[in-house]
Design a protein around this nucleic acid. Structure first.
Lengths: 330, 330
DNA sequence: CTGAAAGCGCTTACAG
DNA sequence: CTGAAAGCGCTTACAG
């Protein structure tokens, strides 16, 4: 297969065709600078008719801009986060597109940010959106050192990082408080990647609720860092011996595994179950479970909007907290 | 938050610092054109030390290239496809990055390809990778009319479209043949979006197997276009009355629903189950089900490699079929 | 082997 | 109100 080069019409072409200068054409399009109403109309109608679109790359070069935002997605995560990230990405693309920006994708582990580095060093993007935060974050360190504008969906402990996040801490506090109020005191906490900031936030909200209720959480009931079905099951089976009366899952994948284990014939009942994230996995489940619901798409749109403000020289608040919703199901 | 403009070092800077011309620096880097070994080494060591990286956008403008590939993802699809697309996307990013290309993301329904159009008209990408094919495909029509190089992951009926796909037809034939050989003749076929090409391919493979076995498939056992849990369950419940002895699912989401229904107390057993796609949903299931397994990442890498060949002026074959694997589980 | 100059397709002071 | 010219950061014939 080969493709015929259909060479694009340039600003010079339309200038020549109209017998005006490139400057004039440029001004008619951009709306900047004085220009006669008649000439502008003439130019505008010509380009509309001939389908001329200025080359954004050339425009960008002249303005030292790229009209690209780079979004970096983490490579490794569970499937529960998958659709969340996807939705968020779509939100970014939508908000960016509306403002004439495109999204350049970067994949990255904490260890390997080479893709991000390449994009930045090649001068391919005006700013970046970080979709995942780490407690020791190479992305943040790199971008800050380079002075590249960026925002983060999620929370960060690094000073000066513009963050857009759902209010995980409040949400988890509220959900935990609900359990406590139902008379559940020995709440087990299962799952969560401890290197992720979001886990810290959830944990904090959990403890907030205990503090507010003047109760004390039992660390023996914490089971962080569990991803495999087998280890989650083992944790759940150990619960009765620990006199747990409820279990709170860090995300919907964990919840899904816990649910399965609890349904086994030899599993004790009487445990109350809730999840810190109402993902796609929970939606498909027969047994409804109380969970916190977040809107990933609006997170993405807000993040992108904030980055564009930043690029536009506006001042943005360092932290934007988006609302959540708790879906109570018994 | 604001960021200090740390202005990048340009080719003019290094030329001046070294007392040579920009031409020389450019040649030292690109390796094109004659240049003294000594000067080249001097330039190279200087740029290594000072961390100079040529601005790819400017380079691109000079060469009428962008070093971007646009990949368009469909917006609406089930979660079973989600991780497949994600993996594929990661494969593309990897292969592209290795060749100095970045990926520009476009989201699109069949109805609305405005994001793709914008990217192309703005001159932001050298070529595009279509991740989803439709029987009436606005993307293909647009790109062909514009003469933009593109490839597609999946299959297409449009003439002249470079396709990279897994061999769905053969895979489905083989899997169906296996059931037939096991003595199952009344195989129900559930799910599949009829507007997607992949459904056509799977269907064809299914019928191939019947033909080869000199049997006839019963159209009464076809249940296409089922996405909701409820409608899938209804279909499964109607199976005994239709004397079905096996069920073949179009994807893992369908399989997952079927599995759940079959496990209900009042559901008849004796049905054999298999799926045309071994997705993440099936992996998490307790009951193992025979299914076809595809490597999405290598699909992405191959697609990107093919597009790059195309951009490089190489001739590529119109259709590349990737191998599959059938995971037999009883 | 090396460089001055034109060009990629735009924008934007600076003059008029 | 309009245009000639320089510039964005690179490449690449064309001379030497």
């Amino acid at each position: 297969m080969d493709f015929e080069e259909k060479k694009n019409i340039t600003i010079a072409d339309v200038a020549q065709a109209l017998g005006v200068s490139k400057t004039t054409v440029s001004r008619a399009i951009s709306g900047k600078g004085r220009i006669g109403e008649a000439t502008r109309a003439r130019v505008l109608s010509y380009i509309a008719e001939h389908g001329y679109r200025p080359n954004l790359v050339a425009k960008g070069l002249a303005q030292s801009k790229t009209y690209n935002v780079c979004v970096v997605m983490p490579e490794h995560y569970g499937m529960s986060e998958l659709s969340f990230f996807q939705e968020c990405l779509f939100g970014i693309e939508k908000a960016g597109g509306a403002a004439g920006y495109d999204v350049l994708l970067s994949i990255c582990d904490n260890r390997d940010i080479s893709s991000l580095v390449r994009i930045i060093e090649n001068g391919k993007a005006d700013g970046v959106i970080l979709m995942c935060s780490f407690v020791k974050d190479a992305q943040v360190e790199f971008l800050q050192e380079r002075g590249i504008p960026f925002v983060m969906t999620g929370s960060s402990d690094y000073p000066g990082v513009v963050q857009i996040d759902h209010d995980h801490r409040s949400a988890c506090r509220e959900l935990t408080a609900w359990l406590l109020q139902k008379g559940r005191e020995r709440i087990a906490l299962i799952g969560g990647n401890e290197t992720h900031m979001v886990t810290k936030m959830r944990m904090a909200g959990f403890l907030d609720a205990y503090r507010a209720a003047k109760r004390e959480a039992d660390p023996a009931l914490f089971f962080p860092g569990l991803y495999q079905a087998a280890s989650i099951e083992a944790a759940v089976r150990s619960l009765p011996a620990l006199h747990a009366d409820a279990v709170l899952c860090m995300d919907d994948l964990v919840a899904s595994h816990v649910l399965r284990t609890l349904r086994e014939p030899d599993a004790q009942g009487a445990l109350m179950l809730a999840s810190f994230y109402n993902g796609i996995l929970l939606e498909n489940h027969v047994t409804p479970v109380t969970a916190i619901s977040f809107n990933a798409r609006s997170l993405g749109m807000t993040a992108c909007g904030t980055l564009l403000d930043l690029l536009g020289g506006g001042s943005v608040s360092e932290r934007t907290l988006l609302p959540y919703e708790i879906i109570y199901r018994e």
